[in-house]
């Protein structure tokens, strides 16, 4: 082949063209009643990178994350994600799109009365429907094995048949991550996955999430500065409904982030909470 021959002769390009962003948000806005939570938010995120969203309570981080998969319908602006113009998708297309995006919730959102394994099997509903995806006892052998592998990846294979509501907060969040893996997502969003965990469980969870989701690309919200600095490649700070801070994590300092949170009120309002924190 000509191209491969050329590739062998010619020296590699000095600077590879940057990969297109997997997520590009432009001028996104969302108002709840009188309150403009998001006014004009634009940002990009890349595959293989972790983007941390930071900001005081009520600055719209959760609203932004939810708007990306239309759990909240934005009022205006554009979301391009995984090559799709998200806001133009109809019901069926939205369902198909959502199945490609993993979402880790602050409150793990497991079905407490069901077993850990069944909760993980539910992740397969991204690509299959019907009774075989409802319960591990009904699932085909291949799916049960895959679910067990996902549970092993989060270190909870020995808890497969335990009821989900018998787990600790950290374990529950790990099961939620296993369910997300079962989904085989191409990109991952995480809304304060470390919020309700003690420092050690929180750190372990972030290490796990980083290890499992880093390659795909991850946008996460965390209120823990040490997690933001340790587990992200880029930091985006929201304040007053816009992106007020954007920098690479390797150039960021704890003092700088602290200063961002401490800036005078009026710019970065920490007023009443948005409906989604």
């Amino acid at each position: 082949m000509v191209s491969s021959t050329l590739a062998r002769i010619l020296p590699p390009e000095p600077e590879a063209p940057p990969a297109p962003p997997v997520l590009a948000v432009s001028s996104l806005a969302k108002t709840f009643g009188e309150r403009a939570v998001l006014r004009d938010v634009s940002l990009v995120a890349y595959r293989g990178e972790v983007t941390a969203l930071i900001g005081a309570n009520g600055t719209g981080k959760s609203t932004l994350l939810r708007a990306l998969v239309r759990l909240v319908e934005p009022d205006s602006g554009r979301v391009m994600m995984l090559g799709q113009d998200v806001r133009t998708l109809d019901r069926a297309a939205l369902k198909a799109f959502r199945s490609r995006v993993g979402f880790v919730f602050q409150k793990h959102n497991l079905v407490g009365r069901l077993s850990v394994l069944t909760n993980v099997v539910h992740g397969v509903q991204a690509r299959m429907s019907g009774p075989r995806s409802w319960h591990h006892a009904l699932a085909p052998a291949a799916i049960r094995e895959e679910a067990m592998a996902c549970l092993a990846a989060v270190g909870l294979a020995d808890r497969a048949l335990q009821r989900a509501d018998s787990l600790s907060g950290g374990q529950s969040q790990r099961v939620a991550i296993a369910r997300m893996l079962m989904q085989r997502p191409e990109f991952v969003l995480a809304d304060e996955p470390d919020a309700s965990l003690d420092p050690r469980a929180g750190r372990e969870l972030m290490e796990l999430l980083y290890r499992l989701a880093h390659d795909k690309g991850l946008v996460m919200i965390s209120h823990r500065m040490e997690h933001t600095l340790r587990f992200s490649d880029r930091i985006i700070g929201l304040a007053g409904g816009i992106v007020a801070l954007a920098l690479e994590t390797r150039h960021a300092h704890a003092d700088q982030l602290k200063a961002f949170f401490d800036r005078p009120a009026g710019f970065s309002h920490a007023e009443d909470e948005s409906p989604y924190g």
Binding site: R98, V101, F105, K107, A126, S129, H135, A176
Partner: peptide
């Protein structure tokens, strides 16, 4: 029934039937 698990399944891309039988019915059982 708790809306959290239903939202999680909707975000996975589950059908309405899947959501009812995976999250709503177990919780309401």
């Amino acid at each position: 029934a708790d809306k959290g698990p239903q939202e999680a399944l909707a975000t996975i891309g589950a059908t309405r039937t899947g959501l009812i039988f995976s999250a709503v019915v177990p919780l309401a059982l």
